[in-house]
Computed example of a mutant assay.
Amino acid sequence: MSLLEAWEGTLRSTVGGCFPGERAVFRGHDLHAELRGADWLDLYLFGITGRRHTPAQLKVLHAIWVNTSYPDARLWNNRVAALAGSARSTGNLAISAALATSEAAIYGRQIDIATADFLVRAQAALAAGQSLVDIVTAELQANRRISGYGRPVAKGAADERNAVVLELAASQGLADGAYVKLAFATEQTLLAGRWRMRMTYAALAAALALDIGLSPREYYLYMLPAFLAGMPPCFIEADARPEQATMPWRCSAIVYQGPPRRHWREQNASDHD
């Protein structure tokens, strides 16, 4: 029997099911009876992890989302939502596209999982007896960077979100876990060496989530809607302007410092030389 034949027929699931006119089951619990009063984030995380979280943990995880909700249409993913509004697309398409571009490798979800992965590996290496200096040096030699450190848009400044979220985490007794300590120790190692990289929000958020008990993959899935709240305002504002009036920049407004313009025939001739 082939793999597909073995899975043919009734869909088998352990995460839940819908029974129209009767009930809905969410990870073994009746959604409309046992879970109907759940906080949305509590339900979302229960779906991801299969675990419920305490009010203190949920407050910190809510804060991680809230404090990175920037309604600025110049940001790469919000720009997608705004331009979709300018083109008179639907809100659903605009936000879905903006969330898809949030997967970016420099600023978005790929950084989240890479940061969490680094912290988990670094913690294991420390437990095995390696020094943090050696761990940091090896990571930089292998990847030329450490995810969660060195903010491209403000290299020398502290991330404006970190102090706010850390203060709230401290008020909930969740600011001194092993991963948070490691995140700060890594920053000090980088600042003391020749690298001079400050910790970004990605490192602090990942450390807090890991201390709460999320795995790197669970953390990545939890962070999927993190930028969502800032997107609808950008879409709405662009939709309220005249059509195509959001960021209608001329090509002449672009500051370009690369190779000079060449005609196609010149390029084609050089390719055959």
Score class of each variant (00 low, 15 high):
Asp176Pro: 03
Leu168His: 08
Gln257Tyr: 10
Tyr107Met: 14
Ile135Arg: 01
Met223Arg: 13
Ala238Glu: 03
Ala104Met: 08
Asp117Gln: 15
Pro152Ser: 07
Ala128Leu: 01
Ala169Val: 03
Thr186Gly: 04
Thr68Leu: 09
Tyr201Trp: 15
Gly16Met: 05
Leu214Arg: 14
Glu34Phe: 05
Gly16Gln: 06
Lys181Gly: 09
Ile48Cys: 07
Asp211Phe: 02
Ser171Leu: 15
Glu22Ile: 14
Gly129Ala: 02
Gln123Arg: 05
Leu11Lys: 10
Leu83Gln: 09
Trp40Thr: 14
Gln130Asn: 13
Lys155Trp: 07
Arg121Tyr: 00
Ile111Thr: 13
Ala183Thr: 01
Ala206Tyr: 04
Thr115Ile: 02
Ile111Pro: 08
His62Met: 07
Gln267Asn: 10
Leu75Thr: 06
Asn268Cys: 14
Asp39Asn: 10
Glu187Arg: 02
Arg261Trp: 08
Thr49Ile: 09
Asp211Tyr: 03
Ala127Tyr: 00
Gly85Ile: 01
Tyr44Glu: 06
Leu45Met: 15
Glu8Cys: 13
Leu41Asn: 09
Lys155Thr: 13
Leu132Lys: 01
Ala56Tyr: 13
Leu140Ile: 11
Leu45Phe: 09
Arg74Ala: 12
Ala253Cys: 08
Arg52His: 07
Gly91Arg: 13
Ala157Pro: 05
Ala192Tyr: 04
Asn143Cys: 06
Asp176Gly: 10
Gln267Trp: 11
Ile212Gly: 02
Gln57Ser: 07
Glu5Val: 14
Val136Phe: 03
Gly150Tyr: 01
Arg217Cys: 08
Gln188Met: 12
Thr115Asp: 02
Ala238Ser: 10
Leu93Asp: 09
Gly28Val: 11
Ala6Lys: 09
Leu140Thr: 01
Val133Cys: 11
Ser215Leu: 05
Ala128Glu: 10
Ala125Leu: 02
Asp30Pro: 03
Leu228Asn: 15
Asp273Asn: 09
Gly21Glu: 06
Glu266Lys: 10
Leu31Tyr: 05
Ser86Asn: 04
Ala178Cys: 00
Leu61Gln: 02
Asn268Thr: 11
Arg109Tyr: 12
Ala142Met: 05
Ser147Gln: 11
Ser270Lys: 05
Arg151Thr: 14
His53Leu: 14
Thr10Tyr: 07
Pro71Phe: 05
Asp117Trp: 05
Ser270Val: 15
Pro248Asn: 12
Trp7Ile: 08
Arg144His: 07
Val255Phe: 14
Leu126Trp: 01
Leu35Tyr: 05
Arg250Trp: 11
Met199Lys: 04
Tyr201Asn: 11
Glu160Ala: 08
Ala240Ser: 14
Ala82Trp: 00
Leu208Arg: 05
Val180Tyr: 05
Phe227Arg: 12
Tyr70Pro: 02
Ile106Ser: 13
Cys234Gly: 04
Phe227Thr: 11
Gly129Met: 02
